[in-house]
Design a protein around this nucleic acid. Structure first.
Lengths: 96, 96
DNA sequence: TATCTATATGAATAATTGTTCATATATAAA
DNA sequence: TTTATATATGAACAATTATTCATATAGATA
């Protein structure tokens, strides 16, 4: 069983790297239930607007979150069920 | 749903951080089937013995791999099924 | 005991990355 | 059109981290 060529190895590492930051984990956590706008996220995770925005960009670029505009606000949500699954599996692991 | 207090947030990030490196991903990949000794791992993943050893220490410390001694050699293997599951889920995700 | 092989590890270096601060952009409201 | 609010972004800095090189340790064999 050899599941990974060189490209996929890097893709895998990049994917998990995204999950490997406290701020991003917090953001994903608060997005588990419902979409939220940037300032709501910033308030909930207790991080500056700028820092949240930077991290959302990273999450967006790696397609872990999606967003929609509504007037002045931009609402972010998890991109798909896979993101939740990976999060949940990690959650299970640390609670063992 | 708020699954994470501050400690668990950090634990989650730390867990995924371990998966977030190409060398460690390669090591986990070659350990999917069977245990291997350090120099076999080094050969298979094409990284120096020293680098592999450093990474194995990190994997060991975070309890993602276990090991047993046999004479001169030390055989490493994945710690439990969770490690494989997380790896597989990541694999699924990047192959979407 | 002396030597060889397998593994571990400390220090140094280079590279990556997260936050802050200042500011830009864009939409809404007055 | 002017002002206020929400979001994005570039530069700078500090911190973290992966590799290399040299070397240490420990078990096996001669």
């Amino acid at each position: 069983m050899n599941l990974l060529n060189d490209d996929k190895t890097i893709d895998m590492a990049e994917l998990f790297k995204i999950f490997g930051d406290s701020t991003r984990i917090k953001i994903i956590n608060v997005l588990l239930d419902s979409e939220l706008c940037v300032c709501d996220i910033a308030n909930k995770v207790n991080v500056s607007q700028s820092a949240v925005s930077h991290q959302l960009r990273i999450l967006k670029q790696s397609k872990l979150v999606k967003y929609r505009k509504d007037g002045n606000c931009i609402y972010y949500s998890l991109a798909d069920d896979h993101v939740k699954k990976i999060f949940m599996l990690g959650c299970e692991h640390i609670n063992e």
